[in-house]
C-alpha cells in the first residue's frame, strides 16, 4: 500500500473508532434535527403545500432536509476533532511525520465523511413510515448523494478548523455560518417559492443542492421536475467538495505559521 494511503487510512480509522467510543456524540448529532423535524412536521401537517409535491405533508417534505441537516451537523462538527488534536498535541505528532499534508487532510476528511454518511443513512430507516418507497437504483443514488454531501461539508469544516485553535472560537464561527446555511437550504421551504433575492442566496448555498438532490432521488421514479433536479445538483456538490478539498490541501501545504 502506498505511504499516502497507509497514513490516510490510519487517520481515518482513528477518527471512526474515536467517534463510536464517544456515544454521546452519536446521539448529539442525531437528536436535534430529528426533534425539529418531528415537531415542525407534525405542526404544519397538511397546511403546507410545495410546488411539484402537492399532497405531501410537511413531515414528508422536510424529510430529505432533515437527512441533510444531520449530515451537516455531523460532518462539520467532526472537524472539531482537528482542533482538539491541535490543542492536545496529537496533531504535532502527525505533522512531524513524513506523511504528506494532503494525506493528513484526506484522512481527516474521510473520517468526518464516514461519520456523516453513517448518520445520514441511519435516518433512511424512517422512510417507510412516511410512505417513501425505494428501488435498488434510488437507494444507490441516495447513498451516493449522502456520501458526496458528507465529503464536501467535512472538507469545508476541516478548512475552517485548520487555522482555528479553540473549540469555542470554532463554535462561534460555525454558528454564524451554519445558521443561515441550514435555514436557507431548501430544507424548510422550497427554493422556488421564495423572494428573488433569497432565491439567489439559496442558490449560492451548497447545502441547497444536497437537499435538492436528495428530494429528487426520493421521487426519481415519478420523472417530474423534482426528480430531474438530482443529477445537476449532484454535480454541483461534487464540484464544491473538490474545490474545498483542494483549497484546504493548499492551505495546509503553506509553510508553517511564522507569527
Amino acid at each position: 500500500m502506498s505511504r499516502f494511503l497507509l497514513g490516510s487510512i490510519s487517520l481515518w480509522k482513528r477518527e471512526v473508532v474515536r467517534f463510536y467510543r464517544q456515544r454521546n456524540r452519536v446521539i448529539g448529532a442525531l437528536m436535534p434535527p430529528l426533534f425539529i423535524w418531528f415537531f415542525l412536521g407534525s405542526g404544519f401537517g397538511k397546511s403546507f403545500s410545495a410546488p411539484g409535491m402537492e399532497g405531501a405533508g410537511y413531515l414528508e417534505f422536510f424529510y430529505p432536509g432533515v437527512i441533510a441537516l444531520v449530515v451537516l451537523f455531523t460532518s462539520i462538527y467532526s472537524a472539531m476533532s482537528l482542533i482538539e488534536d491541535r490543542r492536545d498535541g496529537y496533531l504535532q505528532g502527525v505533522l512531524v511525520s513524513p506523511m504528506p499534508r494532503s494525506a493528513i487532510i484526506f484522512g481527516k476528511v474521510l473520517g468526518g465523511t464516514s461519520q456523516g454518511f453513517v448518520q445520514g443513512v441511519l435516518l433512511l430507516i424512517l422512510a417507510p413510515f412516511i410512505g417513501i418507497e425505494f428501488t435498488l437504483a434510488s437507494v444507490a443514488l441516495i447513498l451516493a448523494i449522502i456520501l458526496t454531501l458528507s465529503f464536501g461539508l467535512t472538507a469545508f469544516g476541516i478548512m475552517m478548523a485548520w487555522r482555528t485553535d479553540s473549540v469555542s472560537g470554532f463554535h462561534a464561527i460555525m454558528n454564524f455560518i451554519l445558521m443561515p446555511m441550514w435555514l436557507l437550504s431548501g430544507a424548510f421551504f422550497p427554493v422556488g417559492g421564495s423572494a428573488v433575492w433569497l432565491n439567489v442566496v439559496m442558490r449560492l448555498n451548497p447545502l441547497t443542492y444536497g437537499v435538492e438532490a436528495l428530494r429528487g432521488a426520493f421521487y426519481a421514479e415519478a420523472g417530474n421536475a423534482v426528480g430531474l433536479a438530482t443529477l445537476p445538483a449532484m454535480f454541483v456538490m461534487l464540484g464544491f467538495g473538490a474545490v474545498i478539498f483542494a483549497a484546504t490541501v493548499m492551505m495546509a501545504n503553506r509553510p508553517v505559521r511564522t507569527s
Partner: peptide
C-alpha cells in the same frame, strides 16, 4: 502528549507507525 487517550497504547503505536509508512 502525542498519544490519543481514547485509544489503547498499542493502537496508538500502530497508528503512529503507519504515519511513518
Amino acid at each position: 502528549s502525542i498519544l490519543d487517550g481514547k485509544l489503547t497504547l498499542r493502537e496508538n503505536l500502530l497508528h503512529h507507525g503507519q504515519y511513518y509508512g
